[in-house]
């Protein structure tokens, strides 16, 4: 068991024993390889079930929305930024959440690991320092961990929690090493027709399960526009315009709020890269408004306020 897991269990146990919180929201060991499960520990004994691995790929801020009581939550950089966003958007009360901050090792992409073993059944995967050990019924192989991180983790700008009540382990390197502005660059070089063609190719396999929306801590509308039926904005079938409308509008609703946590891509059962859209939107927000979501509790989100200095105000 890794040291962070041990520290996490101890912290959770202490908070629950002292009655500081009603619940600690973290992860527990998943039942299948490469997937941990969001977990809600209510007792010091249950705190012993918490784990922290590279397969903790959801965004736990999501579970704070609409939740009663006082909750502690495990938060690396992106998750803490989303919590800050939810506090700013009046979805979470700062006094009701106890943030257990930590440094993200860069989460892993199970799809990339699976792709190394076509037609072979993987039965167990564990991390061993800088390596990943992959086991099947008749094989065991070691992979270099840094090659199998999720795409968003390579361009992470805040790996340490930015807002926390206590911090587990040591603060680590703040960035993933990659240039986040470059993620959007391939799109910028394309003309509109090419962009559309690429967008179509990427999003056409969507099965409309809405896992991307439902794992996202930004998507907390009481009624999502695709679920509205009076009037109905969007058809329910597999017609491409309806699929595309969902993804484009959802991306726009997230502009200036997305922390690039990657939960949507990790959740998507068909492997759609939603960051194709959000990377460009967030780059625009950085460049036009000099703003990055969730770094503090004070700066208003740029698209939620009007200012005469707004870059898009007609001169």
């Amino acid at each position: 068991m890794n040291e962070i897991t041990q520290e996490m269990r101890a912290a959770a146990k202490r908070l629950l024993e002292e009655g500081r919180v009603d619940c600690v929201i973290g992860y527990t060991k998943g039942t299948v390889p490469m997937r941990e499960q969001p977990y809600f520990a209510y007792t010091p004994q249950e705190a012993e079930n918490l784990v922290w691995t590279g397969f903790c790929v959801n965004n736990l801020a999501n579970f704070l929305i609409g939740r009663s009581g006082r909750n502690a939550v495990i938060a690396q950089g992106c998750v803490s930024r989303n919590i800050a966003g939810l506090i700013k958007e009046n979805q979470v009360n700062r006094d009701d959440v106890y943030i257990i901050g930590l440094h993200s090792p860069g989460m892993l992409d199970s799809g990339k690991i699976e792709a190394e073993f076509p037609d072979r059944v993987i039965t167990e995967v564990e991390e061993d320092g800088e390596e990943i050990v992959v086991r099947g019924r008749d094989f065991e192989e070691r992979l270099e961990r840094k090659k199998y991180k999720r795409n968003n983790c390579y361009t992470c700008t805040h790996r340490n929690a930015v807002l926390y009540d206590e911090f587990l382990g040591e603060q680590g390197p703040q960035t993933g090493g990659g240039d986040i502005d470059k993620v959007a660059a391939p799109w910028e070089r394309l003309d509109p027709e090419q962009r559309w063609a690429q967008f179509e190719a990427e999003f056409k396999d969507c099965i409309r399960c809405y896992a991307c929306r439902n794992v996202c801590p930004l998507c907390y509308c009481d009624v999502c526009f695709v679920d509205e039926n009076n009037p109905q904005w969007c058809g329910k079938g597999q017609e491409e315009p309806d699929i595309f409308t969902f993804h484009i509008i959802r991306a726009f609703h997230c502009a200036g709020r997305c922390t690039d946590c990657g939960a949507c891509e990790s959740a998507c059962p068909v492997g759609i890269k939603m960051r194709y859209l959000t990377s460009k939107l967030e780059k625009d927000i950085r460049q036009l408004y000099d703003y990055q979501p969730g770094l503090d509790l004070e700066t208003p989100t740029p698209l939620a306020v009007y200012s005469s200095n707004d870059p898009d105000v007609a001169k």
Binding site: Q37, P38, Y39, F40, N62, F63, I207, R208, C209, Y210, A211, R213, N214, V215, G235, K236, G237, A267, P269
Partner: peptide, 27 residues
């Protein structure tokens, strides 16, 4: 307890070979 981690997406139902519920729409 079972529901706690569920995000209520439709992945399980859409991948399930026996899930069969449907909606009817006029377009």
């Amino acid at each position: 307890r079972i529901f706690e981690s569920c995000i209520n997406c439709g992945t399980c139902t859409f991948y399930c070979p026996t899930c069969h519920c449907f909606d009817i729409q006029d377009e």
